[in-house]
Simulated scan of single mutants.
Amino acid sequence: MSLHKDPELKEAVLQLPPKEKDKLLVRLISKDKMLMKQLHYQLLENEDDLGDRIVALRQKLQDLLEPSHSGIKNVAMYSNYRSLTALLRQASGMITEHEKITKDKFSEVEFRLLILALAFEHYPILFQKSYVSISDKLHRYVATRIQSTRNKYDKLHEDLQFDLRDLFDKVETFASEHPQLA
């Protein structure tokens, strides 16, 4: 039940003594890991920490999609399509968590473009037309990610778009050469 739907409870909570409210707040926060991460970032970190977070996440994403690390081969096989789809979903989850914590739209778009560009660079065979049925699932997922990233990119200020133009163009060019990603 939402606190907004029970105004009596909301008023009672607001009337609690500060010490009791603090204890209750700390107990509630500890139950929500995302809220804890958001509060940690907002209250204890600064711009330098955002830069460190961006560098660390960029390295994690590059390592995650590296063929020697992922074990995925650039060969049109069922397991490779399935593994790459799972890997892209995992990377997307890491980016979503980063954005929810930092609220940094620029780095979110940069990372979404980065994982697409890395996937296209490392696994181009898996994005060609294929008769392996699971390839459609990967292609639909990537097409959706491209469209979503394109929309987020378009919402950025033109100066920020300029900073990401090369990466954006790289992704758009690859996608335009592969009609199944449209």
Rank of each mutant, 00 (worst) to 15 (best):
S68G: 14
V55A: 10
P17C: 00
M36F: 00
H69L: 14
D6M: 11
Y41P: 03
L9G: 11
R150E: 12
T173C: 00
D22Y: 12
H98K: 04
Y153G: 01
G93Q: 10
K73R: 15
L14P: 00
H157I: 02
K33I: 08
E110F: 15
G71N: 09
G51Q: 11
D136T: 10
D6N: 15
R27A: 08
K103L: 14
K73M: 13
L3P: 03
A175N: 00
I146L: 11
A175P: 01
H40E: 10
K129I: 07
A175H: 00
L160S: 14
R165H: 14
T149L: 04
Y141M: 11
A143Y: 03
R89I: 12
Q180E: 10
T173P: 00
E177T: 15
L35Q: 09
L156Q: 06
P124Q: 15
Q15R: 15
S92K: 02
A119C: 06
K19R: 11
I29S: 05
Q59V: 13
H4R: 07
E97P: 01
S30G: 06
F162E: 06
K105A: 09
A119Y: 08
L113T: 02
M94N: 00
A86C: 12
M94P: 00
G51N: 08
Y141I: 09
A175Y: 02
R89W: 01
E45C: 05
R53K: 15
L64H: 06
D166L: 11
M77I: 07
N151E: 10
R27W: 03
Q59I: 14
Q147I: 03
A182N: 07
S133V: 09
Q62L: 14
R150S: 11
A117L: 08
E8V: 13
